[in-house]
């Protein structure tokens, strides 16, 4: 005997493709040992100056948010509108100096989903 049919469940599905408003980047600033480390405001200023250097005033006006910043490790999570990702990424890559000292930005992870940055299997050490 067949079991009594259950009332149909409502079901709704929505797909968003290429629709992410923002992209997120996890970055780390590399500086030679010793010397001053930028605080969060100086860090943001550095990102803006990197954008200005490569893309001019229009690039500097690109809204970039420093969502988190850890002064100890010089790592940060940045948020940028999706259309500005290439601009930001290229500006960070080509930045070479902070206060006349050599420096480099390492882009560790990038994603259109902020949640994806909280679980990176490539950095996972299990044993």
């Amino acid at each position: 005997m067949e079991p009594p049919a259950l009332p149909a469940a409502t079901f709704e599905r929505r797909v968003v493709r290429s629709g992410a408003e923002h992209h997120y980047l996890r970055v780390r600033l590399e500086l030679p040992d010793g010397g001053a480390r930028p605080n969060v405001a100086q860090f943001k200023q550095l990102v803006v100056s990197a954008l200005r250097e490569l893309h001019g005033e229009v690039g500097a006006a690109l809204p970039v948010d420093v969502l988190t910043y850890e002064e100890k490790t010089l790592s940060a999570i940045l948020r940028v509108i999706s259309s500005g990702l290439v601009k930001l990424w290229s500006a960070l890559t080509l930045l070479g100096f902070y206060q006349n000292r050599r420096c480099a930005f390492r882009v560790l992870q990038t994603s259109p989903f902020l949640l994806a940055l909280s679980g990176n299997s490539r950095e996972l050490v299990l044993d």
């Binding site: 469940a9 709704e12 599905r13 929505r14 290429s18 629709g19 259309s83 990702l85 990424w89 259109p112």
Partner: peptide, 19 residues
């Protein structure tokens, strides 16, 4: 293509399972 985020898919679903 890195700036355009092509093909990122994100599908929320809603189902009731009150029964």
């Amino acid at each position: 293509v890195m700036g355009r985020g092509e093909g990122h898919i994100y599908c929320p679903r809603k189902v009731e399972f009150k029964t």
